[in-house]
Amino acid sequence: MTRLAGAVGRWTLDLLQAGLRVSSLMVDTLAAVAATPFRGRSARGRAAVESFAEFGSRSLPIVGMISLLVGVIIALQSSYTLERWGAQRFIATLVAVSALREMAPLMTAILITGRSGSAITAEIGTMQVNEEIDALEVMGIDPIRYLVVPRFVAMVLAVPAVTVVSMFIMVAGGLFTSVWVVGVPGGVYLDQTVQSLVARDLVIGLTKSVFFGVAICWVGVYRGFQVRGGAGEVGRATTSSVVTSIFLVILIDLVFTVFFYFV
């Protein structure tokens, strides 16, 4: 019993300590972003653009593919219920609302976590193992400024940008399904889509995705810096980075959903 209490206490302390370290990492990063990180240093601007291409553009094929499939799935699942009432034209509403408010931001965030959150941890973790982070410190180069800021800026822009693309493709997936499988005319579907969407849906979707981007980047970076020891640690940190990120993304999603439900 005492052992259990001790374990719970230790676990809580560890959690608090991790929270504290993540917060100080957040403060450092934001301070560095605020302090004009690109001050005459084109190299860092280039790094941010390069990261944006990696997190954003290069994730488009897989995000597009998955979004199309998810659009088809939502359309078919809605059709299953709606056809009983002869209300198949409302497939468009269900696809549009769930794509914009929920599925596009969530799917994009999860895919980018798997592709890039993991890569950030592995990269920084490997640099930690090879003493490259120490080398930066000793050269008087702040690792937060040099490594984290470009990735942070890129990630916070890339996740919403990719989310917008994902939204369009999901709606397209729903459109193809209702035209070719269910038999709702394309014009009716598009009318219904436009009617059922309000700007608020887009705002909710994009706000979430910005926060998803923040979470993915910070978890990735934090786990990377935590690596001590050898290559095995890098693997473990990468796994843990992905699991933690996905959990946080869904938690943030829940918080926003509850918030917008009441507001």
Binding site: M127, N130, E132, A135, V138, G140, I141
Partner: peptide, 21 residues
Amino acid sequence: RRRELRTRMGMCFQGSALLGS
């Protein structure tokens, strides 16, 4: 101040610690 001081010293690491990228 620490960063300023570090521009006036150098260090060679055992594994050389060159940035791999």
